[in-house]
Simulated assay, not measured.
Amino acid sequence: MQVGDKIVFDKYEWRVLDIQNNAALVITEEIIEQRSYHDAYKDITWADCSLRTYLNGEFYDKFTAADKSRINPVINKNLDNQWYGSKGGADTRDYIFLLSLEEVCTYFGDSLSKLQNRGKNQRYWFERKDENNSKRIARLHGKEWDWWWWLRSPGRVNVKAVYIFGTDGNIGIQGNNILKGNLSDGRCTGGIRPALWLKL
């Protein structure tokens, strides 16, 4: 197994992002479903959001015992938003998680320098002309179109979370609402691309 490979684990296809200590960091190749980041419109961080509860509970429990034994728990650092200073919250112990802003800038081409050196005219989008944008585009499972997907990092304020824009892969560093959206039921249903560390 090498970085960049696609593998099948459980019923999903995963992309290998990193290999360390006999384990591979993998993320689903497609957006597997749509969910709100949290179930209430209030300040929240990854540590306490309903999406984390779902991924490490109901979603994780769908794996067989044999597959669960291959998923390594990890301590995730949840940094503050580098542009706006909104709180990233406590470190978390996760089996299943979303990538952070820093991780997506590392594993989908090296864009960390652009993150750390904000352009004077940059407000909402991280970097429209980032050559790595196209690497972040993901298709919604079972559909013929691309969709936007959540990261676990906080947006400009803590009722928002950072996301990847669907059509061109831009990073929405100001964030999207964790719950309130434009749908009739009020949800803001971003795409979910779970990530995990898989024992080799």
Rank of each mutant, 00 (worst) to 15 (best):
residue 55 L to K: 00
residue 198 L to W: 02
residue 128 R to E: 07
residue 61 D to N: 15
residue 74 V to T: 10
residue 34 Q to H: 10
residue 45 T to E: 12
residue 190 G to R: 01
residue 130 D to N: 08
residue 121 N to R: 10
residue 19 I to L: 12
residue 2 Q to S: 15
residue 161 A to S: 04
residue 28 T to K: 00
residue 122 Q to V: 13
residue 135 K to R: 07
residue 132 N to G: 06
residue 187 R to D: 09
residue 8 V to Y: 10
residue 96 I to L: 13
residue 106 T to Q: 15
residue 43 D to N: 15
residue 17 L to C: 12
residue 11 K to D: 06
residue 50 S to H: 13
residue 183 L to R: 14
residue 120 K to V: 14
residue 177 N to T: 04
residue 59 F to S: 07
residue 63 F to R: 03
residue 107 Y to D: 05
residue 43 D to W: 06
residue 49 C to I: 00
residue 144 E to R: 13
residue 31 I to Y: 02
residue 110 D to Y: 14
residue 129 K to A: 12
residue 187 R to A: 10
residue 105 C to H: 02
residue 26 V to G: 01
residue 122 Q to T: 11
residue 17 L to Y: 08
residue 34 Q to D: 07
residue 23 A to R: 14
residue 75 I to K: 12
residue 174 Q to W: 15
residue 48 D to F: 05
residue 85 G to M: 03
residue 133 N to W: 09
residue 55 L to T: 06
residue 20 Q to C: 09
residue 1 M to G: 08
residue 28 T to R: 00
residue 109 G to L: 03
residue 180 K to F: 13
residue 188 C to L: 04
residue 163 Y to F: 15
residue 95 Y to T: 05
residue 22 N to P: 06
residue 66 A to G: 05
residue 119 G to W: 04
residue 166 G to C: 05
residue 44 I to V: 15
residue 86 S to K: 04
residue 197 W to T: 02
residue 115 L to I: 11
residue 68 K to P: 06
residue 173 I to A: 09
residue 72 N to S: 08
residue 101 L to C: 01
residue 200 L to W: 09
residue 5 D to W: 03
residue 140 L to N: 02
residue 134 S to P: 08
residue 141 H to N: 10
residue 31 I to S: 00
residue 142 G to S: 08
residue 193 R to L: 01
residue 155 G to R: 00
residue 22 N to M: 09
residue 138 A to V: 06
residue 38 H to D: 10
residue 6 K to D: 11
residue 52 R to S: 15
residue 58 E to V: 13
residue 140 L to T: 02
residue 154 P to G: 10
residue 48 D to I: 06
residue 73 P to N: 11
residue 185 D to I: 03
residue 61 D to G: 09
residue 158 N to E: 13
residue 184 S to G: 08
residue 182 N to M: 07
residue 161 A to Y: 01
residue 22 N to L: 06
residue 27 I to F: 06
residue 81 N to W: 02
residue 46 W to L: 06
residue 27 I to M: 10
residue 142 G to E: 03
residue 198 L to S: 00
residue 31 I to V: 10
residue 180 K to G: 08
residue 151 L to T: 07
residue 179 L to H: 05
residue 114 K to D: 12
